[in-house]
């Protein structure tokens, strides 16, 4: 499986570490324990198109948002995570 790293170009997935599927963190000021535990544990675990966070551990050491098909392992896009607007 090749991941097109925005900085390094197409690299083998073994250079990366899978971090998690993208989950938005709850608002720290208002979230209760149940919301925090959902954020920690519950996962969509989709069969098909997924959006995930990967770390290019053996490359540029940047966090990369990867779009992938979990049924075929085909990667369709990869973007730098620090450029993603998270609100």
């Amino acid at each position: 499986m090749l991941i097109p790293c925005p900085l390094c170009g197409p690299r083998d997935a073994l250079e990366f570490r899978f971090v998690d599927e993208t989950v938005l963190r709850p608002e720290p000021q208002s979230a209760g324990p149940e919301q925090w535990r959902s954020y920690l544990y519950l996962r969509a675990n989709r069969a098909g198109a997924v959006t995930e966070l990967w770390l290019h551990r053996s490359g540029c050491r940047q966090y990369v948002v990867v779009e992938r098909d979990s049924l075929t392992n085909t990667v369709t896009a990869a973007r730098l995570a620090r450029k993603e607007a998270v609100s």
């Binding site: 969509a44 675990n45 989709r46 069969a47």
Partner: peptide, 18 residues
């Protein structure tokens, strides 16, 4: 393997990654 997909059909979210 398909536990999440079956649970989704009943509207139950699971703490599972396959």
């Amino acid at each position: 393997g398909w536990a999440t997909l079956i649970a989704d059909m009943a509207g139950v979210r699971l703490p599972i990654t396959t």
